[in-house]
């Protein structure tokens, strides 16, 4: 899961990024509206956390511009303004959720899970595929009812696969969802994580499509 964080305050941005990284999200952090718009246009994010009061271009304008170009990235607006009017303006400009500062990190994460679920057209919070379960809220995985412990990266990778159960995921897509900007990507790290997941979930749970990438084995085969 790759998240764009748009927050001009150094302390707050740093805190949110650290918190989301602890929750195994790949977080890109920008500090003004123009950068935010550029990042959202150039990359694909699973969700965006957007502050309203931003230099160069305020959050509402970013949101409007984004929706005008039909970009459907789920957006959670963070703001200190808590009046009814502000909330209405925020939501009507295309926000999916509205959080008032100060807020709880756990609540923010729950909102991210909710908007991601909705964007993927998933009703069930618990992800299930061929006997493997993954609960994004508790980050617990299981195989046929038995719990399986996963590292942060393994969890993030499995979450990516199980959020797109019928899709072929290219190496680039997987890496983009695992690593934020500036994070060092070891050359064969992806293969290592996939190897670990296969060991824990069954060797044929993830299939390699030669030259194209990886996919979850579908029920029919």
């Amino acid at each position: 899961m790759r998240i764009l964080l748009v927050e001009d305050d150094k302390l707050l941005g740093d805190g949110i990024r650290a918190g989301l990284m602890l929750a195994s999200y790949a977080v890109d952090w920008v500090r003004d509206g123009e950068m935010a718009l550029r990042a959202l246009t150039d990359h694909s994010y699973d969700a965006c956390i957007l502050d309203i009061g931003l230099p160069k271009m305020d959050g509402i304008s970013v949101l409007r511009e984004l929706r005008q170009h039909n970009n459907r990235t789920p957006v959670i607006v963070l703001t200190a303004r808590d009046t009814k009017t502000d909330k209405i303006i925020g939501l009507d400009s295309g926000a999916d959720h509205y959080l008032t500062k100060p807020f709880d990190l756990g609540e923010l994460e729950a909102h991210i899970r909710a908007v991601v679920r909705r964007a993927g057209d998933v009703a069930q919070p618990l992800l299930v595929h061929r006997g493997v379960t993954l609960d994004p809220a508790s980050k617990l995985a299981g195989v046929d009812g038995k719990p399986v412990s996963l590292s942060g990266r393994e969890y993030a990778l499995l979450l990516d696969f199980m959020s797109h159960p019928d899709h072929l995921r290219s190496r680039a897509q997987l890496e983009e969802s695992l690593y934020a900007w500036g994070e060092e990507v070891e050359s064969n790290a992806l293969e290592v994580y996939i190897h670990h997941l296969r060991k824990k979930l069954g060797s044929d749970f993830i299939q390699t499509v030669r030259g194209l990438g990886y996919r979850l084995r579908s029920d029919g085969k």
């Binding site: 305050d9 650290a18 200190a80 009046t83 008032t100 990190l105």
Partner: peptide, 30 residues
Amino acid sequence: TADAAHELRTPLAAIKVQTQVARRSRDATV
């Protein structure tokens, strides 16, 4: 009101989030 809310709430939000990060992390550097 909007400006005051922003200036007063943002540092509090930062402190709260950073506190939660400190409590959750098992990594000493973080």
